[in-house]
């Protein structure tokens, strides 16, 4: 691959990556072309996908209902494949806020949000989001009133979680595209809310 030179000389683990890859290619298990295509495919998944789903749910009550009932199927209707895993969409309301974490590793709805941010995989976030969600949210700049109930979702097995944030006020005349642009990655993890 042409970018190999960018990190030479290799560290121990980079050396392992190149070696493993070359061995697997020599054995005919993967090809460089498959790898390059997969890298590109993953690179092209960005949180805009998730934002599209959220905006659709905001403007279309039928879709919203389906999304909350069976996230996987609803996304498939939009042409978004969610292989092997099940998507659970959890809805923020005026009285309830949802927050997603994976305490055991770094499970994340990658098919809708792309690769997770560094902090999502960090020890600090993973340890504390379950035990002191309000303190963690306040570090993200989100002060939640005590009356609002928090539901923390620990993705421990085969489900993946997406938060459906509340539609911001005074956006009745906004197009779906404009609404989607207000939905950030962090809103769909539950560490932020849409601000317009």
């Amino acid at each position: 691959m042409k970018d190999q030179g960018s990190y030479q000389p290799y560290s121990y683990f980079q050396l392992m990556e190149v070696s493993l890859r070359e061995l697997l290619v020599e054995k005919g298990i993967v090809t460089e072309a498959q790898l390059a295509a997969t890298v590109e495919e993953v690179r092209n998944i960005t949180p805009e996908r998730g934002a599209r789903v959220v905006a659709k749910a905001w403007v279309n009550t039928e879709f919203r209902k389906k999304l909350l009932q069976d996230g996987t199927r609803a996304c498939e209707e939009l042409g978004l494949e969610i292989p092997a895993l099940k998507l659970v969409v959890v809805e923020n309301t005026p009285t309830e806020h949802n927050l997603v974490v994976c305490t055991l590793c770094s499970c994340y709805p990658r098919m809708l949000l792309g690769m997770p941010p560094e902090w999502y995989k960090s020890r600090n976030y993973r340890s504390r989001a379950v035990r002191e969600p309000r303190a963690v949210l306040s570090e993200f700049g989100l002060e939640l009133a005590q009356e609002i109930k928090i539901r923390v979702h620990d993705s421990t097995a085969d489900m993946r979680y997406l938060v459906l944030p509340m539609r911001p006020a005074d956006t009745e005349d906004w197009s779906e595209e404009r609404l989607a642009a207000s939905v950030t990655r962090d809103c769909m993890i539950g560490v932020a809310v849409p601000r317009i």
Partner: peptide, 26 residues
């Protein structure tokens, strides 16, 4: 596989927050 809902105040004896806060785990 189930999603099981737990009351935070029961999981963490020193939990600070709304007494109805929950944690849901698969």
């Amino acid at each position: 596989l189930y999603r099981v809902r737990f009351l935070q105040k029961k999981v963490w004896p020193d939990y600070q927050g709304n007494p109805d806060d929950v944690i849901e785990v698969e």
